[in-house]
Amino acid sequence: MATVETKNIRKVFQEHTAVDGVDLQTREGEFLVLLGPSGCGKTTLLRMIAGLERQTSGDILIGGRVVNEMPPRERKIAMVFQSYALYPHMTVAKNIAFPLKAQGAEPKTIDARVKTAASMFGIERLLQRKPRQLSGGERQRVALARAMVREPDVFLLDEPLSNLDAKLRHMARDELQQFQRRLKTTTVYVTHDQVEAMGLGDRIAVMSAGKVRQLGRPQEVYDDPADTFVAGFLGSPPMQFFENDGALVGFRAENLLPKAVYSSNEPLVSFWYRVTRVEDLGADRLLYGSLRDLAPDTKMIVNLPSTIHVPLTPGEAYEFACKVNDLKFFDPKTGLRIPSRPLRGKA
């Protein structure tokens, strides 16, 4: 068990700054997700933690020790790559055994631990196969088995699910989480997929342009984005903004509901919403339209759960409302959150 800590880590490739002063600290046994669009520096950060890339400046600590000068093998980490990076010329058994052999473990121990690892991932019957004879899901399990077999202090996972098809990905996500909960090994997980991040992470670090924009529990990051980037990156559709009185006001599509739905004792803000189109998706209804009085020119989407049966006709305006707390205010120049304030103008 160990924590991972980065102190003001920077990585500069020639002209381009990939990671720009990141301070992060995991907790014991935590599942920390690095989330961000491609090119945001998350993979570089992970590779620096692994020791595959040398940071330009700053310190990396694993289990409280500074590991800057240590090669990967001394950092007590295991890594799963996006491509799985299985050794194509070795059988599954040899792939899993490789880290143990490199440690110089006894053949007996190796055997036993390979078996344990294989059974943990249900791949015992694949042990004598070569990687090219496996499906994508099977390869991913072998990669995980190879990573956990020598019981590292930290798991580093680089988009391990992105090569799986959508159906498999759901299951794999679930397995992955169960497995991590069971082992309680500190895990740093890189992904660009917010659903994965929300579903897996104890905490999420949202990254952009080499910086961590926000670190927090999934719900925190979702509900209380620190800036417009985080707000706009998470959620489907992402948070929507309109200008009001020199501030950017954001809300999520699912937070705006017909006023009639709310019980009367909640503090609400209400809007007139003009519906232009209705999309019935079964579980939800997506409404396209705009805030008639506050921002008539900005398209806004509203997501109504199908449990709300209010009839809505395109072309008509209705009175919608959201809780006061669901409106988030941002500085339009810096994009940073600012304290809530009353809306101005006629709602």
């Binding site: 093998r73 295991a78 990076a85 020598r150």
Partner: peptide, 23 residues
Amino acid sequence: IPQDIHDAAEVDGARFFRHMFQI
């Protein structure tokens, strides 16, 4: 040989000769 394979071997603890002769 994909760079990932080399990285994996390095993370898995292979030193120069093991890396050379087994990978």
